[in-house]
Design a protein around this nucleic acid. Structure first.
Lengths: 221, 221
DNA sequence: TAGATTGTTAATCGATTAACAATC
DNA sequence: TAGATTGTTAATCGATTAACAATC
């Protein structure tokens, strides 16, 4: 099997393929060619074939790709064929939003615990999951094989909590705190930095303004 | 001035520079060299100099960069020197989380309206902002110069609402719905696809497992 | 068999890194 | 002036696209 190292660029695109294939599947489309998929997705057919070939030949010459098969194979690559146990650290607005987001459960991500330091909410429930005290987190980690921790806590606390989680055997950190965590290379990491996303959006508005101004100037001449 | 087209790769990195410079600034650091910044951020000094030079010479040979000046200049590039008016479409969990996130206000993003279709919550307030009916959105857009709309609504409704917003003059869409919006090239767009981020995380766990298994096999020999 | 479409190699493009002259 | 560090050009690297032989 492939010793090829899958580039981060390819991994970034996989969930989007998965989403499009899921839609095709629910529309009862049986087969699709890289050309047709490329037109729907707005990418090149070449890229699709190149990407998929990183994982082995999923298609068939003269036919294309079987939608259901390809959907399932990409699901396996993404690790969606087995359950992941998730805990949420920080039951603020974002933490509660994650807990309430049913799509995650559907994809095999089971939220098995929510933790917070605020005594006012410890003991209450979100979606049937009790909010526990941070003081019982270590014991909880010993009792449960937790895969993923979503960090929705203030940036000041995030590095220490992340270090503790690593010590207690976490396998992946989904970081919503606006700071960079320095995790060992054995622990997977994904950052969701909403403030940065919003700044990029603002930056893009500015770029567009300038582009339009330039075009106006050109029109004048 | 520069006719250079700023690549999307550079724009993606700018908010992170901005964050690090903000931290240096609050630690009263006056000047910094690309070398020192590169060590803190885990990127090459070459890349920092290359990136910053897209926008003109912010540094000084033999000295480095003035932290406050550079911070403000990048802020301007990101469009943070002027206020942005933001509305939130969809007052569910994510919409409410955004409304409650005070960091945005600090950076000049003013949330001036929240909209929803649910009669049970229309009229109530989040952070002092009244939740309005979607039926008054068109009039609201006429009365207010809205820059950015955060879409935190189900994916089925997102394309139509986005099209309406474009018609009514929105300048940028911050899309949280798990679907691709096809906006005209004059409207800026940023997608936050949480489910995709979580899948990538799961994929990375898998990749690490395989890597570790391979190393174990090697150790056996 | 003829047509279609993949898998894969080669060519191109763009982004990152290295190197160094310019200059504070 | 000597040392430091930028701005910028050149070299390298990796990712994307094009092309086409293999094959269903």
């Amino acid at each position: 099997m492939s010793d090829r190292k899958i580039s981060i660029a390819v991994i970034k695109r996989l969930p989007r393929y998965y989403r499009y294939l899921g839609e095709l599947l629910s529309n009862d489309v049986v087969r699709i060619s890289s050309k047709e998929l490329s037109e729907r997705m707005g990418v090149t057919a070449s890229q699709i074939r190149q990407d998929l070939n990183n994982f082995g030949g999923f298609g068939q010459q003269g036919y294309g790709y079987n939608v259901e098969y390809l959907y399932n194979e990409i699901g396996k690559i993404l690790g969606l064929d087995k359950k992941n146990k998730v805990i949420i650290i920080g039951a603020g607005n974002v933490g509660q939003a994650l807990a309430n987001y049913s799509d995650f459960q559907k994809r095999g991500f089971d939220i098995i615990g929510i933790f917070d330091v605020n005594p006012a909410i410890i003991g209450t429930s979100v979606r049937g999951i009790e909010i526990r005290s941070m003081s019982v987190l270590e014991q909880f980690m010993k009792d449960n094989k937790v895969d993923i921790a979503a960090l929705t806590i203030p940036k000041e606390k995030a590095p220490q909590v992340a270090a503790d989680l690593v010590k207690w055997g976490i396998r992946a950190v989904w970081n919503f705190a606006p700071t960079d965590l320095h995790l060992p290379p054995t622990v997977a990491q994904e950052n969701v930095h909403l403030a940065e996303s919003l700044m990029r959006l603002s930056c893009k508005i500015k770029t567009m303004d300038e582009k339009m101004n330039k075009e106006k100037e050109k029109d004048k001449k």
